[in-house]
Design a binder for these strands. Sequence first.
DNA 1: GAGCCGTGGTG
DNA 2: TCACCAAGGCT
Length: 337
Amino acid sequence: MHPSMPSETERTLAIRHALVAWFLREGKDYPWRRTTDPWAILVSEIMLQQTTIPTVLGRYEAWLRQYPTPAHLAAASEEEALRSWEGLGYYRRVRSLQATAKAIAERHGGIFPQSPDDLRQLPGIGDYTSGAVLSFAYNIAAPIVDANVSRVQARLDNDPTPIDSTEGRKRHWKRAAELLDPDNPRAYNSAIMELGQTYCTPTSPDCLLCPCREHCLAENPASLPVKTPRPETLEETHHDILCLTGRGILMELQTNGRHLGMYRLPRRTADETRGMRKLGTQKYGVTRYKITRLLYQAPPDTEPRATETFVSLDALPSIPMASPDRKIILKHLPQGN
DNA sequence: GAGCCGTGGTG
DNA sequence: TCACCAAGGCT
């Protein structure tokens, strides 16, 4: 081998060292980095799934005060748990988290699992979250791959394999395991993710300041990672009613699938809202849907349908519903109750 | 294995 | 304004 050309092993060690040294010097201070309590770590990881750090920072500590141990969440009603998650989205996360809390309380005797197999058995904990809990809580040498890790690795190695393909996932988990610092998995995993949030960002990487710039093979960093295109967004229009009476506000309690146990404004066909006064328009996005909601004032003598019920204004703050519903209701309630 | 799930910030 | 993106997991 040419003496000036580092071997692949040397390069791997150099990247590892550069990341850890940088992180120990400049790593940010987050609440979940001040604890090794596996429950506190798990909660942060579930909240951070597909959710930005600022959003989680605004909710994490208060939520943890409400549910400081798995037993606390296990003892809560599902309605209360859903309500506590409102605004964070992906509500299946909190259902799974509560199921996990119950499993820990009941099957593990309240002792937090410490093996990959036990963790992966728990609902809502996949390969990423399992590795995160093992490394951040216990400092166990478990690799993690998230959007940051795959982006950073794709650039470091100038790897054009689509990161969301089967082949790409396989490569990135293998690479993450190679790069992981066995002597300090906690710092290493934190480091590579933080690099992805600070310098090695999706659209405009700041390569001049990057601690790995000497080791990076990316020819055109901003063009990586390659990923398969997103599905096309679809537009929908909903016709919902606001029916406010002395008995409260009419709400539909959803009885199916993902939204089971959550409330929403009653929905009608365009035809059924004909003649009602239009109160306003709301636009919001839900995953791949772009929704336009037209809100109508329904007469007080509106007959509740099977899954519809009047909710008193006193009870309104404690029932779970999606953010857009909460917002538009508050906007149209007398003096924003 | 592709499609699905919520929301808020950002360029 | 709007498309894109985020510490993924489940079916």
